[in-house]
Design a protein around this nucleic acid. Structure first.
Lengths: 207, 207
DNA sequence: TTACATACATACATGCATGTTTGTTTGATA
DNA sequence: TATCAAACAAACATGCATGTATGTATGTAA
């Protein structure tokens, strides 16, 4: 059956994205063929190549559809936040982890990015978007860390950029390992304790 | 020219592993064909299929050749270490990072594991080895963390397993991000500060 | 020196993934 | 209502990756 109206076309497109997201996350990007995606969506490859140029374009649309946590974090960072900069950092990190924990779309996409695709030259545009968002987010958080140092909440000896990179790496690493084996530990508990530990370590010794 | 003596065969095998390690790390596992590996090693696919059953077997041999940092860490953990448990943990984490930083083979393999292969069912045996080593290492480090709590070096409120998972995730995340873009930050500096921060956060508040 | 096994190269068969092109059915538009 | 374009399906062409089978030259042991 051919979908005819524009709404139907959007339904098809959405079904294709859903199928791709699921299959990529389950079986890996390069291990999933366009035909498999089409079949899972109940159409043929003709539909895919009508809506998307190729597999990369399909992945690009996947990332376009889901706001990555770091992007959302940047938006919220722009808003005012009552509280000290360190609490602000903690809230944002926990928000990222929470989104991966609770939102299936986000979880699938992060899983794809961390475990189900290879960082090769062909996929460079996709990874550049990933990296670009992260770096911009880091840059903004460095300002927060600086503010924390000014307010005496973070020890002067710490370099702010390294501080933020460490914090983000901690969050990345926890999600990375949890997505590898979700039964091995509880994500939210581990994230809460680890972030608390790290942030506690930032305090000046005298305080 | 055909290699004839046993030594020559080992040379060929080694050249194949070198080529595979380089190509996989540069262009991704599923994006590199057996033919490309053979050509890079100066032989034909016949040589590969003589030495290895298939691509998975080739990767398996790659991992067999290089001792992963966590495996080495387990060995060293078994040895006696003068100093407190927390310093012990710090030294081991920095050793892992240092090995990735300094040893090209280790760096290539970790790069492959983190960025250049997809965690799909087909590659399960390889990833199981990876996970197994990590989990065993974590189990041993949990004992160290417990000892740290006994000695009053680590706050009682922290769960030891979560403590170790956080520490390992921090190390994983830093290597993960550094391998993504080695120009963005200095690995050893970031690792040193981040690990120090995390370990400092483990101390009891009163201390 | 003969005989066999090793260490490959070469050739073959197969299948699949991709990209493109063409065809068909309908909705939308004038 | 006639026409055009959208939304696909279906068929086609191509290339590559894999696995295997065969061939061959040489080291090695009896």
């Amino acid at each position: 059956m051919v979908r005819r109206t524009k709404e139907d076309a959007l339904t098809t497109r959405s079904a294709l994205l859903d199928a791709a997201e699921r299959l990529f996350s389950e079986r890996g990007v390069s291990n999933t063929s366009m035909n498999q995606v089409a079949e899972a969506a109940g159409v043929t490859r003709g539909a895919i190549y009508h809506h998307f140029q190729n597999k990369l374009d399909l992945i690009d649309a996947l990332m376009e559809r889901v706001r990555l946590p770091v992007d959302e974090m940047r938006d919220e960072l722009a808003q005012t936040y009552q509280g000290d900069p360190v609490s602000h950092l903690r809230a944002r990190c926990l928000h990222i982890v929470g989104q991966v924990h609770d939102d299936p779309h986000t979880q699938a996409l992060v899983n794809i990015l961390l475990h189900k695709c290879e960082y090769v030259d062909d996929a460079l545009p996709i990874h550049l978007r990933h990296l670009g968002g992260r770096n911009a987010c880091i840059t903004e958080c460095v300002l927060l860390a600086d503010k924390g140092k000014e307010q005496g909440l973070i020890d002067e000896k710490y370099d702010s950029k390294a501080t933020v990179i460490g914090l983000f790496s901690l969050v990345d690493g926890i999600m990375y390992n949890w997505l590898l084996d979700q039964t091995y530990f509880d994500l939210m508990q581990a994230a809460n304790q680890a972030i608390d530990t790290y942030l506690a370590g930032l305090k000046p010794r005298g305080a």
